[in-house]
Amino acid sequence: MESTNFLWDLFGRNVWTVLAVISLPLLFVLVYALIAILAELKISAWIQERLGPMRTGPWGILQPVAEVIKLLQKEDITPDQSSKLLYNLAPFIIFTGAYAAFAVIPFSSAFVPAGIDVGLFYVFAIGSISAMGIVMGGWASNNKYSLMGAMRSISQLISYEIPAAMAILSVVVLTSSMNMQEISSMQSGGFWNWFIFGGPGGWSKLWVIPFTIGLTIIYFIASLAETNRVPFDIPEGESELVAGFHTEYSGMKFAMFFFAEYANMFVVSAILTTIFLGGWNSPFGDFLQGPWWGVFWFILKSFFIVLLQIWIRWTLPRFRVDQLMHVGWKVLLPLSFVCFVAISLFAMLN
């Protein structure tokens, strides 16, 4: 397999390059999270005909930095009756889960931190770790709201992993590969070859396009639920559970939850981009194609999905627990099965 990491090509594989490869995504997550928080603040403000933060820096662009500094300075409160070890561990586990998923995300044709062959499988396995952190945090807080939030979160994650997995599995059927870098490179040659439009292929792929578009939407909806975003934010449902599983957290530990949420948003957007929206490929064939442009396209597409999530958050009300289950098991799952079967049929006949 060709090398998928420019750092190893340049400097060879040693301790320093490995460290660099590990820290590059971390750096990216930190910068991205600040931008995403700012985007959340500003977009919500514009949608609601407000200005949003305006005082910190020009047009308030330093607001996320100020918020992080504020959170760092705040007192770190540990509830008296809590289970101390689990309580302190939970935010780190959640952030680890979110961050570990970055290992297989192909940022460019020349850079993926770890080009393992079962990338999609790995992302799914690692993604469930954050659920563990949520339950730990919710249970260890010794708060009834936190406990309810954690219980809701677990049931939600389990139900929505399945439609998401079906969507990803369909792409695996089309590509017969779980390597995210390979899936990305398969979609080169313009947006018509993206898997949202059935992937590369002749005119016979036309009848499969509705199903792939459907799967993209299903995956997007399921990803909203996996990242606890509106309309599926019932684990932290502000109006009933105060703040859900992180009610008792404050200061830096709360900031970890905060970062993990935004990191998770990016992870699911990156997966959606990679498997359906052509990853780091330019939408115009060879125009602006290349390793460096790849980073640009990848981040642009992923960020667009993140913006979509933010936009939805400020538009829709939230579901109730049982309705969430209804949507997950009775709507998304059957529909994703239908799409999966149709795509499998297509892959078989081709």
Partner: peptide
């Protein structure tokens, strides 16, 4: 139900997006 859920969400998103470039009242 699925269709109405989908379309009403889109209606809502159209309305919220139409406000993005409206003059702020702050």
């Amino acid at each position: 139900n699925i269709w109405s859920g989908f379309t009403t969400a889109l209606h809502g998103m159209a309305i919220t997006s139409s406000h993005i470039f409206a003059k702020s009242v702050t």
